[in-house]
């Protein structure tokens, strides 16, 4: 059947595909426009802001937000003169997300395992209390946590930045416990009879069996930390710990209100989506399949 005849016979399908197509374009086009703007010379913005491709494409906006140009050169290319060094913020964000994702996943796996598999007094109460914390909006604990980190002298340190989420989030504990519950007990019993200790069972038997969920939760945690804005802005605004999101917020504020540095801002914004896109390219299927159980159950 030709396409034409197919569409003639199924006008509903055509409308459905059209709707889906529009949704995809509406989703993706803004990102295209972000990159298009980032490739436009700042001076051209007023004369060249409608075409689908810039008249004089350039990478200078990237080199100036990455801190490759000195202040005078950056200013000549449209910068406000404030120091920006996105390569550093990018690194800070990568370190923050990776550190939190790795340590948190490991600690929560241990706890999830104990809560699912080991018998001890107070286990169910402990689990209930931890899950109950899911109901507390983060801003409520954020105020005292800020005071704590400040009093410990950890403002503008990676330790202070990572501290509240480094060891656990209630969600990760909950999520991993559910998975450990589904491992057949027979596997562990066989290992117990072999005389393996609890730690060996966890390390050699249980962890390898739950690789999928572990990667899923680690990725989700990394994405959350990557997107995190308010906490890094409050706790680590200084250069040495400024994350990419905090830097974007600060960059916007430093940019003149009347004439924001759009080309620079869009170049910096583009940087903030690159790692996420890489994640999607390399782990896309796993990430998408993971939605089948993170959101539901």
């Amino acid at each position: 059947m030709t396409l034409r005849r197919f569409l003639h016979k199924h006008p509903g399908r055509l409308a459905a595909w059209a709707f889906l197509g529009i949704a995809i374009v509406a989703t993706v086009f803004p990102f295209y426009w972000m990159i298009r703007t980032a490739l436009t010379p700042a001076g051209d913005l007023y004369t060249d802001s409608t075409g689908l491709w810039p008249d004089h494409p350039t990478l200078i906006n990237f080199s100036r937000v990455l801190g490759f140009l000195d202040v005078a050169e950056a200013q000549a290319a449209g910068g406000s003169g404030a120091r920006i060094d996105f390569i550093r913020y990018l690194m800070n964000s990568v370190i923050y997300s990776t550190l939190v994702a790795a340590v948190q996943t490991f600690c929560c796996a241990m706890a999830g395992y104990a809560l699912a598999r080991l018998r001890f007094r107070g286990r169910d109460l402990m689990f209930t209390v931890i899950v109950g914390a899911l109901m507390v909006p983060p801003i409520f604990t954020l105020l005292p946590n800020f005071a704590l980190v400040k009093n410990l002298g950890l403002l503008n340190t990676m330790a202070g930045l990572a501290a509240p989420t480094l060891l656990m989030t209630p969600f990760a504990v909950f999520f991993l416990r559910q998975f450990f519950l589904s491992i057949p007990a027979a596997v562990e019993e066989a290992a117990v009879i072999d005389g393996a200790g609890r730690w060996m069972i966890f390390w050699r038997v249980v962890l390898p069996m739950t690789r999928g969920p572990l990667i899923t939760i680690a990725m989700t945690t990394a994405v959350w930390s990557w997107k995190d804005f308010l906490w890094p802005l409050l706790v680590g605004p200084k250069e040495q710990t400024r994350t990419l999101t905090a830097a974007l917020g600060i960059f916007l504020q430093q940019s003149p209100n009347t004439r924001p540095d759009w080309t620079g801002l869009m170049a910096a914004s583009t940087l903030s989506i690159v790692p996420v896109l890489l994640l999607l390219v390399f782990f896309g299927r796993r990430l998408i399949d993971s939605l089948n159980f993170t959101g539901i159950k």
Partner: peptide, 23 residues
């Protein structure tokens, strides 16, 4: 039971310090 508490230790420290105490 003893193993369980060791497994739980990091999470309990994190929960106590950054959830219960601030709440």
């Amino acid at each position: 039971a003893r193993a369980a508490w060791l497994f739980l230790l990091p999470v309990l420290v994190g929960f106590g310090l950054f959830y219960l105490y601030p709440a």
